[in-house]
């Protein structure tokens, strides 16, 4: 608990310093340590022996080779590394791995296997919401985080839900349309059409 508070504080300090690191949160604060973290990753139970205060992003990309989650800035400002932790969209670059102990993590690779959430991916393709695609996994995750909580969001709610995800290609127009389309499609499925 205390560790968590200290980490969070230090984490915040680093955050405002723009000095995050891809590999580890809390650089310089901890020497090597060992901790076992258990979590469910894309439906599979994982037990990981962490040697450092690794970021969740580092673990996903380098330990599990789930490279669909992108490194865009490392400072929690672009959303390219978004994943769902217990159905809430968060930036994996800003989460120390021990924070996911006992939690459920879903990455873009896991979305395809979810019949409900994969509807979002279909909608992104159909709405021409994908250009370079680097922000796409994070956008899909943010959309999933929204639609899991608000099934029929207003445009304003969609814009708010995506505001932590930067995109430089699309002006967000087709992405917002994709989220609306996904919401409609999910509703149709729910209504049994």
């Amino acid at each position: 608990m205390l560790l968590g508070v200290v980490l969070s504080l230090y984490h915040f300090f680093l955050y405002i310093q723009d000095d995050f690191d891809y590999t580890v949160c809390c650089k310089g604060m901890y020497m090597e340590y060992r901790e076992t973290v258990s979590f469910v990753l894309n439906g599979i139970e994982r037990k990981l022996e962490t040697k450092r205060a690794w970021t969740l992003l580092y673990v996903l990309r380098e330990v599990y080779q789930l490279t669909g989650t992108k490194y865009g800035c490392g400072t929690g400002d672009c959303g390219a590394c978004r994943v769902l932790i217990d159905n809430v969209a968060v930036n994996a670059c800003s989460v120390p791995i021990h924070k996911v102990d006992g939690k459920t993590v879903l990455t873009i690779e896991g979305v395809a296997g979810d019949p409900q959430l994969s509807i979002i991916q279909q909608a992104f393709v159909e709405a021409h919401a994908i250009q370079c695609g680097f922000c796409t996994p994070g956008m899909v995750i943010s959309a999933a985080g929204l639609l899991l909580h608000i099934s029929e969001p207003t445009e304003k709610e969609i814009r708010e839900a995506l505001k932590d995800n930067l995109c430089r290609c699309t002006g967000y127009v087709h992405i917002i349309e994709a989220v609306k389309l996904a919401s409609n499609k999910m509703k149709e499925v729910e209504d049994g059409h």
Partner: peptide
Amino acid sequence: CSPYNRESWDKVTGNTQYIDDLR
């Protein structure tokens, strides 16, 4: 007409390998 971008499916599923994803 507006056929879908040919790279869309790989991108939206996280399968596209950008340089940083190459191992």
